[in-house]
């Protein structure tokens, strides 16, 4: 995975974002357990060719911004039994992210 020159990021660290809940069509880089969930941008990693296109031998352009998103574990799992302060960080591409609605 090599960083590419691409568009400026839509979201900045500290911003609240929601992961789209659309179904995956083929190779998908947003795991089920975060889809539809709201988290906070921690880091903007930069832009990379879209792996969901590279998976089908396409160039994966334009490059997508990739973010580290932090979720609360109690948001992700109904029956979470760990500390209410536990968090989980997942790398998510921009084409899966929407502005948070709450």
């Amino acid at each position: 995975m090599t960083m590419q020159t691409g568009a400026a990021p839509k979201f900045q660290p500290g911003e609240r974002v929601r992961v789209d809940s659309r179904p995956a069509l083929g190779h998908c880089r947003a795991p089920l357990f975060i889809r539809g969930q709201t988290g906070t941008v921690v880091t903007v990693h930069g832009t990379f060719r879209d792996p969901e296109r590279l998976a089908y031998h396409q160039p994966g352009l334009p490059p997508q911004n990739l973010y580290k998103i932090r979720f609360k574990q109690t948001d992700l799992w109904l029956d979470y039994t760990g500390s209410p302060n536990d968090e989980l960080e997942v790398d998510v591409y921009e084409n899966w992210l929407l502005p948070a609605t709450n």
Binding site: P23, A24, L25, L32, F33, G36, L76, W77, L78
Partner: peptide, 17 residues
């Protein structure tokens, strides 16, 4: 929209083996 743990893969909406 939180999910339950132990949801079977076959109940998921798409190909998620």
């Amino acid at each position: 929209m939180s999910q339950k743990k132990n949801e079977l893969r076959s109940t998921a909406p798409d190909n998620t083996v």
